[in-house]
């Protein structure tokens, strides 16, 4: 009973914090979170419902019924975010590179035997 109260209180606090943060900018996200937490609260208040659902799909315990999808979601989320991170770092590298190419400077070489190298359009040119 105490554990249920603790979990429900924790969910309520998180909801209040997120409501303050997202009520103007992300109402749909907030609604989704509220729905997920409401479903979670049903399982917390009526644990026998989780067991009923678990038995219905051939899983022994109610907690496993909740845990299995959570683990699958967590692993998938890790892969997706890692993939996104690599894409973002590639994009960042290209952006930084474009800035570097655009700002290259050719330092003067009064005794060089060959003509100066060409530089990218808009670059600083020969200094």
């Amino acid at each position: 009973m105490m554990a249920s109260l603790f979990v429900l209180s924790f969910m309520a606090i998180v909801l209040v914090i997120d409501y303050a943060a997202f009520r103007k900018s992300a109402k749909r996200l907030l609604a989704l979170e509220f729905g997920a937490f409401a479903l979670g609260a049903v399982f917390v208040i009526f644990p026998s419902f989780a067991t009923y659902c678990a038995n219905a799909v051939g899983i022994g315990r109610g907690v496993d019924f909740l845990l299995y999808p959570l683990v699958i979601w967590l692993v998938r989320e890790t892969f997706v975010s890692r993939h996104r991170q690599w894409q973002e770092s590639d994009r960042l590298a290209e952006l930084i590179r474009a800035l570097a190419i655009g700002s290259q400077q050719v330092l003067s070489a009064p005794h060089a035997s060959d003509p100066p190298p060409s530089v990218a359009k808009g670059a600083a040119g020969i200094r």
Binding site: L92, A93, I96, R97, L99, A100, I101, S103, Q104, Q105, V106, L107, S108, A109, P110, H111, A112, D114, P116, P117, V119
Partner: peptide
């Protein structure tokens, strides 16, 4: 060094790594 050969200097605004 600038006297005898050309040097082209460019700069990454942030550190990316040797490969980059």
């Amino acid at each position: 060094a600038t006297a005898e050969f050309w040097i082209v200097l460019s700069r990454h605004p942030i550190n990316l790594g040797q490969g980059a």
